[in-house]
């Protein structure tokens, strides 16, 4: 009985110290991690909408607040330059989040940027690199987004590439009402 008590006390003690240390480290770095997450989102919006200097946050159905969040970019003179939104697809290692910038008048993609993914390092992770993301610039949103046909594929990363293509396609269809109104509410 005495020995069992010792096991519990030692294991409990080590777990408690470990918990304390982790709580301290987490508290110290979590503001930085949060800022890291917010920073890229803002940077990504400006990256996929060149010319935008400010943006407004809207949702697809503004009255109920439902549907995807849409960032409406405006330039220095408050003129709309296009919209940006986050498209989520299901990749090989988990969800793939892509920021997409659209020119609503021309119905083309301005640019895309992969925000977050858990794809295999060195293979699927290359969906985030310019050789892959660059091909979406000036692409019409009425395309079919079929991988290996009108979207160039990365060898060994079929599922990751499909995740990006279908994420963009599905979200574009979802926000079609906004597009028809010319990107206005």
């Amino acid at each position: 009985m005495h020995e069992n008590l010792k096991l519990i006390v030692v294991l409990g003690l080590i777990a408690t110290i470990s918990g304390g240390v982790l709580a301290y480290v987490h508290q110290t770095v979590s503001p930085i991690i949060e800022a890291n997450k917010l920073g890229p989102l803002r940077d990504a919006i400006y990256e996929v909408l060149p010319g935008a200097t400010a943006f407004e946050v809207n949702t697809l159905d503004s009255s109920s607040g439902e549907g995807p969040t849409i960032y409406q970019g405006t330039d220095d003179s408050q003129e709309p330059v296009g919209i940006a939104f986050v498209a989520v697809g299901s990749g090989f290692g988990g969800p793939v989040e892509v920021m997409v910038g659209l020119d609503t008048a021309a119905r083309t993609i301005v640019g895309i940027k992969v925000l977050d993914h858990q794809e295999t390092p060195g293979l699927g992770s290359r969906i985030a690199d310019p050789p892959f993301t660059g091909q979406f610039a000036d692409k019409s949103i009425d395309d079919d987004f079929i991988v290996d046909k009108d979207v160039d594929m990365i060898t060994g990363a079929t599922i990751s590439c499909e995740a990006v293509a279908s994420a963009i396609k599905n979200t574009v269809r979802q926000i079609e009402p906004v597009l028809r109104a010319g990107g206005a509410w």
């Binding site: 777990a15 930085i32 858990q118 390092p121 992770s125």
Partner: peptide
């Protein structure tokens, strides 16, 4: 427990100070 503690610390530090690398290593 001791190993997991240091792994979590490494994970948090990478996420905070080297976010790009943290994304790649996942």
């Amino acid at each position: 427990i001791i190993i997991a503690t240091f792994v979590t610390i490494a994970d948090l530090l990478l996420a905070a100070y080297l976010p790009d690398l943290h994304t790649v290593l996942g």
